[in-house]
Design a protein around this nucleic acid. Structure first.
Lengths: 209, 209
DNA sequence: CCTACCGATCGGTAGG
DNA sequence: CCTACCGATCGGTAGG
């Protein structure tokens, strides 16, 4: 019975976090207030305090949820691919598809970076930690592509990761601001340009699309 | 005397806008409130309403000021260079230096894009308009580089502009979030990679640094 | 450009 | 999880 109560509480909490994630996609992590969320999930504000302790605690929970969404949609499928070029191009393709498929708002994590890059505190710390891990994971994937002989031996994984990340960032920018679907094709082409530059044996067919 | 009064009012207005720009660099355009600005410039809130009519009017004035700052620091010097590769590399170099030199906060325009990309209204409209003009100006500069014979004839100006813009976006991201000065060198290298790809006659020396 | 105010909403707490 | 609050701050207005 204690377990049932715990499960119910956990389920309610998850519903609140999901509603917060949806709202944050439109108003940003810093635009979340207990007032709006309370109306959304038909609870009192103080009920939310009972779950999260503070607004910042709620924002951290929503951020973690947003981070997991990217992991589930992009990184998990890519890491099911064999090491080397297959995994790397799956990662970039999957990420491109994820950003392209966002509707009713953008990526909460990317938006939060812009919101919190000048606001010291736990949320900024969480973002810095996550983005560092993400970049390191890209770099490891790229190193494996070098080790597999698919990429040139003199490629710098940090440089390559930066160049891929840049392209994805620009895709999100153009898609959100211009609502321009051409950005998807441009991103695929730009990503293939990066790929071509580092391939040990340049090939004709595009690997990312 | 009417002119003196107008000048004084205009000067005061400019001081308020500059204070707003400085504050927006740290809290974002949407983080501006009349309360904080009033304390900063030692005026009453209602004094600010007299100048700008509404908070949104104030935000638009600050945004225009931030846009002009980029124009003065980056575009004006670049357009003093001769058409073709000199102008294009001056544009990218100057932009890179501008973003690298931002302290006490980031670029208000870039931050505002993330804040307002999902908030319809005059501020978003102003941002979309500006970013469209900026991209078109890049595209014209690239087209001139093609016409001058410096870039390959089959280069697509919109694609090239997208790839350069992506790199600058990633520089801002890494500098603000990681405070990692290595990002400057990585950006220069990434920009040179883009350049190399489109040069009619690839050369050894880097044009952007 | 000011004082003096408005209703609404903010994050958070007391006590249950 | 609730009702009933708190002080602070929000954007904005009246009237000068």
């Amino acid at each position: 019975m204690s377990s049932a109560a715990t499960n119910k509480g956990a389920r309610t909490r998850e519903l609140i976090v999901e509603a917060g994630h949806e709202l944050a996609r439109r108003v940003g992590l810093d635009g979340l207030t207990f007032g709006t969320i309370a109306a959304e999930v038909k609870m009192s504000k103080s009920g939310l305090f009972a779950h999260f302790g503070s607004r910042e605690g709620f924002q951290l929970a929503v951020l973690e949820h947003a981070i997991n969404a990217v992991g589930d949609a992009v990184f998990a499928p890519a890491f099911a691919q064999p090491r080397g070029l297959p995994r790397l191009s799956a990662l970039i393709s999957g990420w491109l598809a994820f950003v392209s498929g966002l509707d009713r708002g953008g990526c909460v994590v990317l938006a939060a970076v812009a919101e919190f890059d000048d606001k010291p505190g736990p949320i900024r710390d969480a973002l810095v930690g996550y983005q560092h891990r993400l970049r390191r994971q890209m770099e490891r994937t790229i190193q494996m592509t070098i080790d597999a002989g698919d990429f040139r031996a003199d490629a710098d994984p940090a440089q390559v990761a930066f160049e891929f990340y840049a392209v994805l960032l620009a895709l999100h920018h153009d898609l959100r601001l211009f609502n321009d679907q051409q950005a998807v094709a441009r991103t695929a082409q730009a990503a293939n340009h990066v790929l071509q530059r580092y391939l040990a044996e340049p090939r004709q067919s595009a690997a990312i699309g």
